[in-house]
Design a protein around this nucleic acid. Structure first.
Lengths: 215, 215
DNA sequence: GCATATGTTTACTTCCAGATATACAAGGTG
DNA sequence: CACCTTGTATATCTGGAAGTAAACATATGC
């Protein structure tokens, strides 16, 4: 049976386009297992090209990774805007928009790159800016400095995790997603601000227990 | 000159103790960079021992890692208790206790192992149990199923991140730490439960130009 | 005191994945 | 058509880290 297998005529792309496509593929691949556990072959496969081709667009694996991170950071900056403005409603809108544009990139940045010693610097500045902005706001509400630092470190993390969980859950109630993320963040601030905390989670068996603690 | 360098008389330990000490050292080392980016030499150095010794206690790097994870999971199970009970106040107390016993182990489990494809299974069951328990409780408050799933996935994550941030911030107000974590979690539930959400973060109102960042 | 377990040192093999080089194939545009 | 670009195939070099082996040193408990 000499069945011609339709040869799949080798889709060729202009250089710039191929580069973009590789970056996108690399983002997906890296987002799964991070830098160290992702081989160039994984990426090549994901992009549908040979490993050799990668070297015609990027000097090294590190170079490629950095390009991926830069690309995503740029997207973030574009959406979040000047980080000097503080950790505001707009920041969360921006994060949400960026996450919807590139879920894989979002995960890559905050779940992998942020913990890779060789690359965290690029993200750490971003996070540090947000944390500092949050601290300025939160410290006005929270007298205890330790608690203020706790909350300002936690608030951005909760925002990010809330967004990721929201993506995972299938983006329910998209219209009010940002508002709900904000509310979750508010929970953190409230938790730090209360001087006398007496909060219980709803009891699983008895429905009588009302959720109290949130003004 | 023949300066004797105090020879450091090679502390020897009985097998079981050395094994424990290696596990502790490996926990610290792995917690920094995860499985792939941590070499056996890193661990040996951390333990103050030669690489060869590691092989007298563990068959392979993978075997050692698994032992580290198992050890920490056991600690978790001991503190959190039967996960079938639901995601309750006691769960958070248990998580907090486990995190204080071994901060490195806590980070390792939830920030690294949970994202390593070869090892996540061990943790995924733990997380799945908690998430399922949380879902049962939360779905009673939240009519929309998508939102309920969002909240029940997010709630444990927020608890964990709140605890880690609390460790990072120097464990402020330890007496009420658990209550504050609960309160942060409550913020998530509230966010999912509200049908009409209209939440804003506090405005970074032009307060006296205190422009000192976060330490 | 002595045997044994504990630990060191050194050298080696193996394997993987990053990186490089070269020869060849074919699309499309001047 | 000629030519350059894009892509493939293959082979090889390389370095680092996992894993193995053997000879040696000495604390320590019996």
């Amino acid at each position: 049976m000499a069945g011609q297998v339709k040869a799949e005529p080798v889709r060729r792309l202009p250089r710039a386009e191929r580069r973009e496509q590789i970056l996108a593929a690399a983002t997906e691949a890296f987002a799964r297992n991070g830098f160290a556990s992702t081989s160039l072959d994984d990426i090549a496969t994901e992009a549908g090209v040979t490993r050799v081709i990668l070297y015609r667009h990027f000097d090294s694996k590190t170079d490629l990774y950095q390009a991926v991170l830069d690309r995503m950071c740029a997207r973030l900056d574009a959406n979040v805007g000047e980080p000097v403005g503080g950790f505001t409603d707009a920041s969360i809108d921006g994060l949400l928009a960026a996450a919807m544009e590139s879920p894989a990139g979002f995960r890559l940045l905050f779940q992998h790159a942020a913990r890779e010693t060789d690359f965290k610097a690029r993200i750490e500045t971003f996070r540090a800016d947000i944390t500092a902005a949050a601290y300025l706001q939160i410290s006005a509400f929270v007298p205890d400095d330790g608690l203020a630092r706790w909350a300002s470190q936690l608030a951005p993390v909760v925002a990010i995790e809330a967004i990721i969980a929201w993506l995972d859950a299938g983006q329910p109630d998209a219209a009010q997603a940002a508002a709900r993320v904000r509310q979750a963040v508010m929970g953190v601030i409230t938790a730090a601000a209360s001087s006398e905390v007496d909060c219980s989670l709803p009891n699983p068996s008895i429905q009588g227990g009302t959720a109290h603690g949130n003004p």
